[in-house]
Design a protein around this nucleic acid. Structure first.
Lengths: 166, 166
DNA sequence: TATTGTTATACTCTATAACTATA
DNA sequence: TATAGTTATAGAGTATAACAATA
């Protein structure tokens, strides 16, 4: 199948020329691949990336308000409502009144919600582990280190560790 | 503004705990930030990331068929049609008959299309440069090096994995 | 019969504005 | 007045099936 390989090489050359000088393209492509892996892992638990993230926050020792969820996940408050409605409808989270602010509602996971989250997190970790298996542990740590300032830019209160070159 | 800082620190802690052990979250977040930068740069040229990518491929020395565009960009062929219709309607690309396959159509940029692409590429590069300015040149190179195998899995050169679901 | 391009459709995700109740 | 949550809606992106022309 020489013709097949030639066609593959052609496509690879097109892709390479497209990526050249466009790191964002690489970022986007790696992201969709990663997303596909985690989404597939979450499907068995009836969750998507959004509902999983909201559930994770609701499991936090210091549970957040919906506004905080919107801020942390960079979602519009109206989108948070939709996700929370779904999770609450399935008995995974509750909206509790905020003692310090009558407008605000605190999101807390139910015991069933925590159970679902524990299992989902396990499977997500396994899926991510499989996805990043091409990289060594040191490389993964380095990737995280490089991505963090890009993911949390500007007014980030947490210090960004300066790099140690290889 | 102590209360503000406390609230920020709280949100940061929530985000940190969410990211912990979830490299995909960092990837997704860095991607949306990068996307926002490039999308803003493309807007002045009447382009979006998709149409920009298709136009870039149409400017290639060895112009691709629509099928090849779909493969390289991992888009469904029907989605390629929509983008090409738009670009062709604005006189930026042409659909030429493929001499070797009557079913196929070769995408070629017009001279105006090449002009638009040149200017757009310049602005995109500048926007990416600004976005990645937090990293040194060496760090950017290292990031690209780490992202590449994740974006282009080695075992098969041009995988068109649709949503892999059971 | 298989493939390229096309059309149509439906579903998800995202963005926005307007409303309520509290502050 | 300003903010948290809610509702409603429109747009963009995505997935899928079916079809015509060609292989």
């Amino acid at each position: 199948m020489i013709e097949e390989n030639e066609a593959d090489a052609r496509r690879q050359r097109l892709a390479d020329d497209l990526v050249d000088g466009h790191a964002g393209f690489l970022l986007a492509r790696a992201n969709v691949a990663s997303l596909a892996a985690t989404t597939a892992a979450l499907r068995a638990h009836g969750l998507k990336t959004r509902s999983y993230s909201v559930l994770a926050l609701a499991c936090h020792e210091s549970p957040p308000s919906q506004k905080e969820v919107a801020d942390v996940l960079r979602l519009d408050p109206s989108q948070v409502v939709v996700v929370v409605d779904d999770l609450q409808g399935r008995g995974l989270v509750e909206r509790l009144p905020d003692s310090r602010d009558g407008r605000s509602k605190v999101l807390v996971a139910t015991s069933r919600g925590r159970d679902v989250y524990a299992h989902a997190r396990h499977d997500v970790s396994r899926a991510e582990n499989a996805f990043f298996t091409i990289l060594t542990d040191a490389q993964r740590a380095r990737l995280n280190q490089l991505l963090r300032p890009l993911a949390f830019p500007a007014n980030d209160p947490t210090p960004i560790e300066k790099d140690q070159q290889p």
